[in-house]
């Protein structure tokens, strides 16, 4: 079993990702100070989703690991999404 064939990620990559994440945090704070109703919520959650994607792909190494991890992670997120959707079939139409 290939116990030590790991991809070493240079520091630089992590620092760039960190900069992007902080920038996106700044944007989401700035955007939400303007009250645009539903759009504000959508933008904030969209930015959070993109941020978490960066964390998953780079910090958590999904990009460098076996594809199986990505497939499992996406599957779990989809499942959580469908559960929330099905729950809202009740609340949206009550």
């Amino acid at each position: 079993m290939e116990n030590s064939s790991h991809h070493i990620v240079p520091y630089r990559v992590y620092l760039i990702i960190l900069a992007i994440l902080i920038l996106m945090t700044g944007i989401s704070v700035a955007v939400t100070q303007i009250d645009l109703g539903v759009i504000t919520i959508a933008v904030a959650l969209l930015l959070a989703t993109v941020k978490s994607a960066f964390v998953l792909i780079y910090f958590m190494h999904l990009k460098f690991d076996n594809r199986m991890f990505s497939i499992m992670a996406v599957g779990v997120f989809l499942m959580i999404g469908v559960v929330i959707f099905v729950t809202f079939l009740d609340y949206l139409f009550r």
Partner: peptide
């Protein structure tokens, strides 16, 4: 099997759409 839980709650007062689904 993950998405059928509501059939335990048909008389709880869920929306009609949820009952149907």
């Amino acid at each position: 099997g993950y998405f059928v839980w509501g059939h335990h709650m048909f008389t709880s007062g869920m929306s009609g759409t949820a009952l149907f689904a």
